[in-house]
């Protein structure tokens, strides 16, 4: 039975927006006869020795589906560390096994193109580390996902489900992620101006729960004197 690993690169681990995306995709893979496993880079693998098990696990896998949030235009630090150590382990390794690697990058910005550079980095890693890159999905406005199961999340994640469905179907045919899936992943359920309005209101509400008014959010503890 072929094996697929869902690698979650979010520092928020099981409570991230990345986890439900991986869960949905792995569910599709199971339907295609894959044995699946979810691996959280955070918090279980925050230190280098803990990553050893992940590195070895990847040696025997047929498909890796990485899901992660955009962090300062790139990958979260611990995910970069995982890449560095996986690459070091695999660079001189001879293997005839065909191992596919795909990635999904989601970010709080509505423009999905802000994620493309991070996906290029994943492609670079995959190709230098002996995986076969099969494509990436850029998802904007990732906060829309929340921690909820994608099936229960309804219409607001319709485009994401659609993109994942097309991706899973392409993988079943041993094809790369199709352009249609990338286009679907890039769609927003609300216009960018409305997303911005909702987002700004949400930050104020979350601060209020900590007894902070809007003005306090502009604090400058490191202002130059």
């Amino acid at each position: 039975m072929p094996k697929a690993i869902g690698l979650i690169g979010s520092p928020r681990g099981a409570k991230s927006n990345s986890k439900p995306i991986a869960d949905y995709l792995l569910g599709k893979f199971e339907g295609q006869g894959f044995e699946t496993e979810t691996v959280l880079i955070y918090p279980e693998h925050r230190k280098d020795p803990a990553l050893k098990g992940v590195i070895e696990k990847l040696d025997g896998v047929d498909l890796v589906a990485l899901v992660f949030p955009l962090y300062i235009d790139s990958l979260p630090a611990r995910l970069i560390r995982a890449f560095e150590l996986i690459h070091k382990h695999r660079k001189d390794r001879k293997s005839s096994k065909d191992q596919r690697f795909m990635a999904i990058c989601q970010s709080g910005f509505p423009e999905s193109h802000q994620n493309l550079l991070a996906l290029d980095m994943c492609k670079c890693f995959a190709e230098l580390s002996g995986f076969r890159w099969i494509g990436g999905l850029p998802i904007g406005a990732g906060a829309i996902v929340g921690e909820q199961n994608l099936v229960d999340a309804g219409g607001r994640v319709y485009f994401i489900r659609n993109a994942l469905d097309m991706t899973a179907e392409a993988i079943a045919r041993n094809e790369e992620i199709p352009e249609e899936a990338i286009v679907a992943a890039s769609k927003l359920p609300v216009p960018a101006w409305l997303y911005r309005l909702i987002g700004n209101s949400s930050w104020k509400q979350r601060a209020k729960k900590n007894d902070l008014r809007k003005r306090a959010l502009y604090a400058k503890p490191y202002a130059r004197h």
Binding site: S10, R12, P43, W203, R206, A216, L217
Partner: peptide
């Protein structure tokens, strides 16, 4: 330590 994605630096202790 690596960032834990809590956003506390924005909504709990702004700027820190």
């Amino acid at each position: 330590e690596t960032c834990v994605g809590c956003f506390g630096c924005w909504i709990k202790t702004p700027g820190q």
